[in-house]
């Protein structure tokens, strides 16, 4: 399955990851890997454990068991700061924005630019934010408003800008287009492909089959906390994926699509 990647080390390798909350097994023995310039779709219905798995990679949650390797090195991701140090950035479904702060304050939150006296360098942060946001949405205007007053699309743009501004090597996108209109969704799709071309590895959590088939190189389906299958996108069709999501298994008598044997 991994023949084309055999020569490179995976960007991320999660191996035998477990997460238990008391008696509830949210993630059970899941292994997945991600190569540079690859988009891997993480699918499954609500509560299948996909967000949980991604939160462990983002350093927002500690795994109960299992190991994570980044560039072949074992990585201990105890906090979001740790993950960011490894170049793992996340766009959360909730966007994770501080509503009372403006776009620049949110973009640089936790990584503020400072003057040589150690004060916040507001001028530079605003200029950088302006550039970063204009790249994604040329119409972005209300830079100094608290983000609570911005539209869903604008807030999403800030969350995306924050993830890519700091030269991410691995990007986790949790439902990045859930709050967006059609034109903005297309923008995110373009952006995903552009980042992929730059060699960034992307985990994409999505419910939108369209997005999945347009953007992903591989898909990984989770069901009840387990990985029920990782496939190249050409080997499966929509019905196969739905069967995996719902039943946790492929349709009876399945053969890889697009292959003769």
């Amino acid at each position: 399955m991994l023949d084309t990647h055999a020569s490179t080390t995976p960007l991320v390798q999660m191996s035998d990851i477990h997460k238990h909350f008391g008696g509830i097994h949210a993630v059970e023995g899941v292994s997945v890997d991600l190569y540079p310039g690859e988009v891997v779709g993480v699918l499954g219905h609500n509560g299948a454990g996909k967000s949980c798995l991604m939160r462990m990679l983002a350093g927002a949650m500690l795994p109960t068991g299992g190991e994570i390797f980044v560039n072949g090195q074992r990585a201990d991701l105890k906090t979001p700061q740790d993950a960011k140090r490894y170049g793992i950035e996340t766009i959360y479904q909730t966007l994770a924005l501080a509503n009372h702060l403006d776009a620049a304050a949110n973009l640089f939150l936790g990584r503020e630019l400072k003057t040589r006296f150690g004060n916040l360098d507001e001028t530079r942060m605003h200029a950088e934010t302006k550039d970063a946001l204009r790249q994604l949405n040329p119409n972005f205007k209300n830079l100094k408003d608290p983000v609570a007053r911005l539209s869903g699309g604008q807030r999403q743009v800030i969350a995306i800008a924050r993830a890519i501004y700091f030269q991410a090597k691995v990007l986790i996108m949790d439902e990045p287009t859930a709050a967006l209109g059609p034109s903005e969704t297309a923008m995110v799709a373009d952006l995903t492909l552009r980042l992929k071309d730059e060699g960034i590895g992307i985990f994409l959590i999505s419910h939108d089959m369209h997005d999945v088939f347009d953007l992903c190189d591989r898909v990984m389906v989770m069901n009840k906390g387990r990985n029920v299958g990782t496939f190249r996108i050409g080997d499966v069709d929509k019905d196969d994926i739905l069967s995996l999501i719902i039943k946790g298994a492929l349709p009876d008598g399945w053969v890889p699509r697009g292959r003769t044997s």
Partner: peptide
């Protein structure tokens, strides 16, 4: 207003989870 600690104080009160995920201690 001018220091990082102040920015973090506002962010924690505004959205504690977002602050944590953004790397604020």
């Amino acid at each position: 207003q001018k220091r990082q600690i102040g920015r973090h104080i506002f962010s924690v009160g505004s959205n504690e989870e977002a602050a944590r995920l953004s790397g604020v201690n």
